[in-house]
Design a binder for these strands. Structure first.
Lengths: 190, 190
DNA sequence: GGGAGCATGTAACGGGTTACATGATTGG
DNA sequence: CCAATCATGTAACCCGTTACATGCTCCC
């Protein structure tokens, strides 16, 4: 009988904690520093670019709740690092979270569209230049997502991670295409 | 000579304050309650769904800084409301913000893709059902954005607001299309 | 009479950031 | 030797949310 069926209460945590635990669920033991790097190369494309200090805070919380354990590895006579791994409870909770907890609302904060929306207060030429700059950034993100997706494809256990990155590649390509549409739309409106 | 050319320092505020001031920059005097409604029908699609309490806080701050002024309107013998309007300083600052302050990074927190990314911990059938539900929500958002865009097109001064809403319509349509792609991709991967 | 909408506000909380601080190792 | 990278942590801050509180008017 599953924990859900047994009616056990769900551990309540913000989605970002689950995101960090999710990184640990890919089986390898990781230091806080490692987690930050993984997050920047996957999570950041579709969810979150966590700050370094936040990661260490989350890891300590996960350990306090028994969802992760840590041990200290002596990398050098004078230097060590703390490695975190997921526990069985952590794995079970992670599964329950993905299955049972309805997805939080999608958050989009698009500072460029915000400026467009208020464009009657400003200079259209500058706005268009900024939009085209953003288009380049988006294309660059698409390329980076694509390259990380190819990397993830090599490991079987990273299948869904790879698909999420493929989704991200498409997201940023679509984002660039919408900017192109937008610039044309602005030209035709004036 | 412009304030920028005069080298005057830019008033520093979080983007959300400018968003609220932006609502006031469409010329009409608005109550906090009104601002909330406008925000839900435009800002919310591409930037922010502010909480009611936050709006009142922002309005008081904008007035304290001289970017907005308020007056009390007696709507009934026993009832009144406070109407806020933008000041010349507010208008000038708004323009400087749109022109001079580089756009903040775009924030995307996609809880559905987060769950997909960690899907090796859970039940694919449930995930797909949730994705299809989200697809419906996205299409509904697209329809709402479209309808608000048509509304905005009627007023000449809302041109950019209307274009931002057209962008939003496309964003949510693309979002739905990406979900369709994603579900096919998941089927083919298994 | 009662519920929906109008209208405003306070208090507690917490999530997450920036800035600061420290120090070791590695490679050019 | 110096810069980049590895590695971890604390403290201050604030943005924004939720929850709570209040009371009116309009309409069925």
């Amino acid at each position: 009988m599953s924990a859900e069926a047994r009616g056990e209460p769900m551990i309540e945590l913000p989605a970002t904690s689950w995101a960090v635990l999710g990184i640990l669920s890919f089986d390898t033991e990781l230091s806080g520093y490692d987690v930050k790097r993984w997050a920047d190369q996957s999570l950041a494309f579709f969810y979150w670019a966590p700050s370094q200090s936040q990661i260490y805070t989350e890891l300590r919380r996960l350990e306090r709740l028994g969802l992760a354990v840590s041990r200290v590895e002596q990398t050098h006579p004078t230097k060590s690092r703390r490695l975190y791994g997921i526990t069985p409870l952590g794995r079970e909770s992670m599964q329950r979270w993905t299955d049972e907890v309805p997805a939080e609302p999608v958050v989009l904060k698009h500072a460029h569209i915000l400026r467009l929306w208020a464009a009657h207060n400003g200079d259209l030429t500058r706005l268009k230049a900024a939009l085209l700059g953003y288009r380049e950034e988006a294309l660059e993100s698409a390329r980076r997502a694509s390259s990380h997706a190819r990397g993830a494809q090599r490991e079987e256990s990273w299948l869904f991670s790879a698909i999420a990155l493929e989704w991200s590649e498409r997201f940023y390509q679509d984002e660039a295409a919408r900017i192109e549409w937008l610039v044309r739309r602005l030209d035709e409106a004036l």
